[in-house]
């Protein structure tokens, strides 16, 4: 059984946000009016976390791509009163929209703020309505949604592999963000396969996990040099 994980190399990331756009269109994420977006009601399953460094005038900003970290020990599923969310055998944290009652405990429970609530009826203005992905449902108003690691792509890849009578190979299944990344900063694969690129990156001394001391055991690793690896990254 695979354990899907991701490694994001911050030295390679140019913060172009191609992953954000790819995710938005792959997963039918609705548009939110600008004024509502400013009040934090924007939906984006992967977004860039701004991290300010230094003080003016030596101020710099680092942008950290942040999808759902698919923790091995996810706090969000512990607080769900209706079992609308859970973690499957492959370690993917899922959300079952028809079961969600919209209490938003999980959005509060997630220390990475990677859960979004649908405050409005989903809107896809203009041609966007024609570009909906038929493999992903459009979530109704009043439910929480989150990154699924493009689970529909896994289903598709499995089906293709099974039809071709071969095991699922590395690279058969990639989430939209990992596929689109122009600088190759996002590596995706099976963490339990020691030969996979992502497992090797996870063992890299530059690798760290956000808020590791909470014990959430995320399966998304970030890689950076210096104080970010191990030291600072663990504390922020």
């Amino acid at each position: 059984m695979a354990r899907w994980g991701m490694a994001i190399d911050l030295a390679k990331c140019s913060a172009c946000q191609a992953c954000v756009v790819a995710c938005q269109s792959e997963n039918n994420i609705p548009c939110v009016p600008p004024e509502e977006a400013r009040s934090g009601r924007i939906l984006s399953w992967i977004s860039l976390l701004p991290e300010l460094e230094g003080e003016y005038p030596r101020l710099s900003m680092r942008l950290v791509p942040l999808p759902c970290l698919h923790c091995d020990n996810p706090p969000c599923i512990l607080v769900c009163p209706v079992k609308a969310t859970g973690i499957n055998a492959e370690g993917t944290v899922h959300q079952i929209y028809p079961r969600c009652i919209g209490c938003r405990y999980c959005t509060t429970g997630c220390p990475y703020t990677r859960r979004m609530f649908n405050w409005y009826k989903p809107e896809f203005p203009g041609d966007l309505a024609l570009a909906l992905n038929p493999d992903v449902s459009v979530r109704p108003k009043g439910v929480v949604e989150k990154c699924t690691l493009c689970h529909h792509r896994l289903m598709q890849a499995r089906e293709e592999a099974k039809a071709a009578k071969r095991p699922l190979a590395e690279g058969d299944y990639l989430p939209a963000c990992a596929e689109v990344c122009p600088s190759g900063a996002i590596t995706f694969g099976d963490l339990d396969d020691p030969a996979s690129a992502v497992a090797q990156l996870a063992r890299n001394p530059r690798a760290f996990r956000l808020l590791e001391d909470l014990g959430t055991k995320p399966k998304v690793f970030h890689l950076a040099e210096g104080e970010w690896s191990g030291g600072r990254g663990n504390q922020t």
Binding site: N88, A89, Y97, P98, H151
Partner: peptide, 8 residues
Amino acid sequence: TECNDCHR
């Protein structure tokens, strides 16, 4: 019988 096997 995982939720995500059918739910999307």
